[in-house]
Design a protein around this nucleic acid. Structure first.
Lengths: 228, 228
DNA sequence: CGGCCACTTGATCCGACTCAACCTGCGTGG
DNA sequence: CCACGCAGGTTGAGTCGGATCAAGTGGCCG
């Protein structure tokens, strides 16, 4: 189903160590300046797999990443998309409980988990910041459980578009980095139902599609009414 | 839909302050000994509501608590059940993002959020323990999103029974503290579908129902096969 | 013993899935 | 530069799993 990954550099082949001196409260917010260690992943390339050791923590520089779980027969649930600026791969306990893949060609900053741990052990503010990240992921998951358990197809898509809009650059114009199948697996639907719901929103005048990946919000109030 | 709460004591009417001296690594594990401050809630009584200030953190002494979100029209998604020993209400950011209610008559230990914060600010081990609690809640939510987005009714019930069994006292015998409606709202189903799925599991010889609330596992392997 | 709440079971309905055809835009090679 | 190929998307027809609506059952408490 998914494309064969195009091999780029892997974290395991990294030569250079990152320096973790002088960590501040906003440590992970200005990580780019501190670390300089980054990796590129091609579309559909795996970043880490469920069950592996969690050796690294990641921050998206640009592009987009999906994290998901699979059932034995291939059914997939995407737990979240990680866009520029988002931290991911912060699995406490040291085991990956989801798989991470690049949605589009992406660059990510990489931090050695061991070193992140030592920062946390010394710096309360940094520890709190990372805890807050985990708490934010939990809050997102709680909202998403409501969507998956109780919302209709059109409500799910409306909520998704509002979420993407809130995380996008300019409000009202969304550039979707992912395909219909990814949206479907995020929303607990099939890609056909996602497509039909897009068409429905468009013919209702709520959104306008300029190609499959560019969405313009025409009636945010209506969308918010639907997204609940 | 839900019963009118029977009024018992509320956190806001507490006279006595808890003392937080001498906090250790296992602070929350031996909280009962340290605090002595506990509250009783009757079945269906609200402990806190979505949107309120998060003044307290709770630990279930006995009984069971559900935390959930509501849609405007009353559709409900239960995010989790909290049983004896479980911590809940640890909302970072100080706002409740779910509502908490007693599933059955329950006793909970109560901690002032302010004081928990000060412990966290001074004690790295305690901070790490609480962070781990948040991470465990996140991991549960990730597993539950897979269930809600991608599993069939029978798979959901199988997974639920395995989860409850793992958290119960003696393996293979489950005493369910909640009603069919709660199970349904946890699994993203209707209570009729939950009931039918119970019947199906029973006539397949996988479980045995002794009354609606007592379940005996007859074929764990089959249940695990279904629960995925 | 009566009533009611929780649960079960049955009949029907409907929203989303499945299967299938077709469209569209883009990259590639002749 | 155009035509072909194909991945991604849309649309249609039919099916099905779970929801809804509706009885009926059982067990507990007053």
């Amino acid at each position: 189903m998914l494309m064969q990954p195009v091999t780029t550099s892997s974290p395991h082949s990294l030569q250079r160590q990152t320096h973790f001196a002088n960590y501040d409260v906003g440590f992970f917010n200005c990580a780019a300046e501190l670390s300089g260690m980054s990796l590129n992943y091609a579309r559909d390339e795996e970043i880490y797999g469920e069950g592996e050791d969690a050796e690294f923590v990641y921050k998206v520089a640009h592009g987009a990443v999906r994290t998901y779980k699979l059932l034995r027969d291939g059914r997939r649930q995407i737990g979240g998309f990680h866009l520029a600026g988002d931290l991911f791969g912060l699995d406490l306990g040291g085991r990956r409980h989801l798989t991470a893949e690049a949605v589009a060609d992406s660059k990510v900053l990489v931090f050695k988990r061991r070193q992140v741990e030592s920062v946390v052990a010394q710096n309360l503010a940094a520890a709190r910041e990372l805890w807050l990240t985990t708490a934010n992921h939990l809050q997102h998951a709680e909202e998403h459980m409501l969507l998956l358990g109780r919302k209709t197809a059109i409500e799910r898509l409306a909520a998704f578009l509002l979420e993407m809009d809130a995380r996008s650059g300019q409000a009202g114009r969304i550039e979707l980095p992912m395909l219909r199948r990814d949206i479907a697996d995020y929303l607990g639907l099939t890609l056909e139902t996602v497509s039909r719901s897009f068409s429905e929103l468009q013919s209702a005048g709520v959104v306008e599609l300029d190609g499959a990946r560019h969405v313009v919000l025409r009636n945010r109030a209506a969308l918010e009414e639907m997204g609940a």
